[in-house]
Design a protein around this nucleic acid. Structure first.
Length: 578
RNA sequence: CUCCCUGUAGCUUAACUGGAUAAAGCACCUCCCUUCUAAGGAGGAAAGUGCAGGUUCGAGUCCUGCCAGGGAGACCA
């Protein structure tokens, strides 16, 4: 808010001078404007002089002098002074009144502050979570689920029409293997009792036996082929596995408070595969290789894409192509985001390349939003097949249990029900924040101690800050008809807080644009930092000047609002008391 | 062999579009609960960003080469 106004001002002044001197013009978006790292350098700083010194023959210092001279002629009252520093930086010192008045504007927006009012209505499909049926969701899925959900929330804030899509893995050779394993060793009752665990055991057993008896591989492939060809028995078993799996997934999604618009899964595209492969043939893209159908992609620096296996069964890649074509036709989306781990980089490069070949006119922006792996303490990938994976519901429940222990020690006088509620909010928040606070491409090592360390830069710190400040608002007697005087918010901390709050909309935009919720997370931490300093150093409730008190309370209210909204975008709840 | 991701205080991470004196948390040391919640606050010590070049007025950030860790590479997803 503040930033864009200053940019506008620089742009206007610059336009005038550029015309006069025949300098190249810059659009408003090209005007560099940043917040200096050191307070002495003012509120905002532009490096525009360096930027254009390359195009015209003047030194940055000369340019800065010309610009500042012009700007000073028509210095608006929102700017106190403009200074040139270090051979070309132009620093702006804002009039505190201008900053204080921002709070008034923000206060009028209240709940909607930071959220777009424009209503863009462009569609964005976000593909996330996407677990495989018959396997437990594990911590790898948690990353996709949490990052995807917060991206969905971010784009919703910007006014996009967001389609939250859970593309379940419910098709492929693995289900042939599973059906084979069920036929060999399965027990219906056991599966009914604990579906996913039992199915996982069967799947693992299959892979163990495979080492001794390689013939099993063929058996699994046959069973999948039968499934694809509509064999009734296999169909029935598969549907049953799927139903049981979905029940368990729903439990987890409910606990995490995550909702999807669509659960359209891999098997849905089964009928589209043959026509798709046909059309690929017609376009003469395909080749036969060792009995399989491939599309060579050397031209694009990629390994060949395998479209159909030698036993004529379909592949992940083919289904993804059918999926993309369906999405293009049905939704005409502006963007599609695939929130999928880094290890599938090659796969998506192939898919996107093929999509461009097949639909050259389609303008949808396809992005693989990749993220790092969750590694074991030994810094190795968890493997489903080897049986070392940690299931997600186990992680969640253990996190809640462990945080309940901590809550019980801290809130000895609370009733159990309240303790439990708090423990759940804290544990889920910590679980999510853990995945959102750092840049998503980094690998994370799964570590209970770090996840449940509730001091410092954590979600609990944010929730705590919210609750603490909220308490002041509750305790403040309801002051009727007292007008806040924002001009009395003149301490350095108050000014800093207002400036920080005014950044919120930009941060939402930035986080969405870069698919990086960690910008928002970091921002909230820095806001909480200032807020806690304020809390410690200024006893608000003792303020005697009522107009100042009311302004302070409004400031605090916006702080809680931004903390609450910001956390909500990250999928994290707040409580009034903690 | 090819491709992708990562490399910043002892550890985990920040650094907006390349900008000024690289910023936090954990751990360590000092201090602050008869004042709105100490899951907090004030302060100290601690790195010059894996290595070598290059581009630039300016590089943790861009380019090239190397090193280290992790991941992917045709019939899994």
């Amino acid at each position: 808010m503040l930033k864009s106004e200053i940019k506008k001002y620089i742009h206007q002044s610059f336009k005038k001078i550029a015309k006069k001197n025949n300098w190249p013009l810059l659009s408003i978006n090209d005007i560099p404007l940043e917040t200096p790292t050191i307070q002495q350098f003012g509120d905002y700083s532009t490096t525009i002089a360096f930027l254009i010194s390359k195009d015209i023959k003047k030194s940055p210092l000369e340019i800065a002098e010309i610009l500042v001279k012009e700007m000073n002629l028509l210095l608006p009252n929102k700017i106190l002074k403009i200074e040139i520093a270090r051979n070309g930086f132009i620093n702006f010192y804002l009039n505190p009144i201008f900053i204080q008045k921002q709070l008034e504007k923000i206060f009028k927006d209240k709940e909607s502050f930071g959220f777009s009012k424009k209503g863009k209505k462009e569609k964005i499909i976000i593909d996330y979570s996407s677990p495989n049926i018959a396997k437990p969701m594990h911590i790898g899925h948690l990353r996709s689920t949490i990052i995807g959900e917060s991206l969905a929330n971010l784009y919703e804030c910007l006014g996009y029409q967001v389609i939250r899509w859970n593309y379940l893995g419910d098709w492929g050779t693995q289900f042939g293997k599973l059906i084979a394993a069920y036929k060999l060793w399965g027990n219906k009752k056991e599966i009914e009792k604990a579906p996913i665990t039992t199915l996982l055991h069967l799947y693992r057993k299959f892979h163990q036996e495979l080492k001794k008896n390689p013939e099993l591989e063929k058996f699994g492939q046959q069973e999948f082929k039968k499934l694809e060809q509509g064999n009734k028995e296999n169909r029935k078993i598969w549907l049953w596995f799927k139903k049981e799996s979905l029940k368990e997934f729903e439990k987890i999604y409910n606990l995490l408070n995550i909702k999807f618009d669509l659960f359209i899964s891999e098997s849905f595209f089964e009928k589209d595969l043959l026509p798709l492969i046909d059309s690929l043939h017609k376009k003469e893209l395909t080749q036969e290789s060792q009995g399989a159908i491939i599309i060579p992609l050397e031209k694009y620096g990629l390994p060949p894409a395998l479209i159909q296996k030698s036993d004529e069964a379909s592949l992940y890649l083919t289904r993804d192509l059918a999926l993309i074509s369906y999405r293009f036709k049905k939704y005409q989306p502006e963007k599609i985001l695939y929130v999928v781990g880094n290890e599938q980089d090659m796969h998506f490069k192939q898919v996107f390349t093929l999509a461009k070949i097949l639909f050259p006119k389609q303008e949808t922006e396809l992005t693989h939003v990749k993220f790092g792996l969750v590694l074991s303490t030994e810094k190795k990938k968890f493997s489903t097949r080897e049986g070392e994976l940690i299931s997600l519901d186990q992680v969640i429940n253990e996190a809640i249990e462990k945080s309940l222990d901590i809550v019980k020690k801290k809130k000895t006088d609370w009733p159990l029900k309240k303790q439990e509620e708090l423990a759940q909010v804290i544990a889920l928040g910590a679980l999510k924040f853990n995945d959102l606070k750092s840049f998503r491409a980094l690998d994370v090592v799964f570590d209970w101690d770090k996840m449940l360390d509730f001091s410092g830069n954590t979600s609990v710190y944010l929730q705590y800050t919210y609750a603490r400040i909220n308490k002041i608002l509750v305790k403040a007697k309801k002051t009727k008809n007292i007008k806040p005087n924002y001009l009395l918010l003149n301490s350095s901390l108050e000014i800093q807080l207002i400036k920080k709050l005014s950044e919120f909309p930009e941060i939402i935009e930035l986080s969405a644009e870069k698919y990086a919720p960690n910008y928002l997370a970091t921002y909230l931490l820095s806001l909480a930092d200032l807020s806690n300093q304020y809390y410690e150093s200024v006893p608000v409730l003792k303020e005697e000047n009522k107009n100042r008190l009311q302004a302070q309370l409004n400031l605090l209210q916006i702080i809680t609002q931004v903390l609450k909204n910001g956390l909500q975008v990250l999928g994290i709840q707040v409580l009034k008391e903690i």
